[in-house]
């Protein structure tokens, strides 16, 4: 079994690790770094629960190997809220719009919306809703997630068409 040394940044903290070549990123984040907010729902890249942000892009951590993140900046759902506990705008929108029930798919939903709305980008509601079609939520019927996405779109740019 191959072992690899990697060095990466997780939620702003530099970290070194030795990982087996076959270890998925989601398992590495959960087991080796304690980022248990990364949830594994399907292991096929379908449900989106394990989504994290790598160098600014939303990525399914079940479809990536830990060794591939050598030199990368990884953000998990634990890394979004401010140090004083203030929620990230995406988290606040989902909370205000009752977009959460069991909370298992939630971290992935949060990370995709954060990746699309952070920084100078101005996605419209359709873009965000299209992105949400890659996330499976079994509890909410997507009502609050849709409202939150529309709210985030109108805040960051074009109104919902």
């Amino acid at each position: 079994m191959s072992e690899h040394k990697i060095e990466l940044t997780i939620n702003g903290r530099r970290q070194q690790a030795t990982v087996e070549g076959r270890k998925t990123l989601c398992d590495f984040l959960r087991v080796d770094t304690g980022c248990t907010g990364v949830h594994v729902g399907c292991e096929h890249g379908v449900c989106g629960a394990c989504t994290v942000i790598i160098d600014g892009l939303a990525v399914r951590s079940c479809l990536m190997l830990a060794v591939q993140t050598d030199g990368c900046a990884v953000t998990t759902v634990e890394g979004l809220a401010a140090p004083d506990g203030a929620l990230h705008p995406v988290q606040q929108a989902l909370r205000d719009e009752h977009g959460v029930q069991c909370g298992f798919c939630t971290p992935g939903v949060v990370m995709t919306l954060a990746a699309l709305t952070d920084g100078p980008k101005r996605p419209d509601a359709d873009t965000l809703l299209d992105a949400m079609s890659g996330h499976i939520c079994r509890c909410t019927g997507y009502q609050g997630i849709r409202r939150a996405a529309c709210k985030l779109a109108s805040k960051t740019g074009a109104e919902k068409p």
Binding site: T36, G37, H39, L94, G103, T106, V110
Partner: peptide
């Protein structure tokens, strides 16, 4: 009233405790 859920603060920030955690 549509009170905000108490659970959401931990679930939205990845601080919930599911069995695999």
């Amino acid at each position: 009233k549509r009170m905000l859920r108490k659970e959401d603060a931990r679930l939205l920030t990845g601080r919930g405790t599911f069995v695999d955690d």
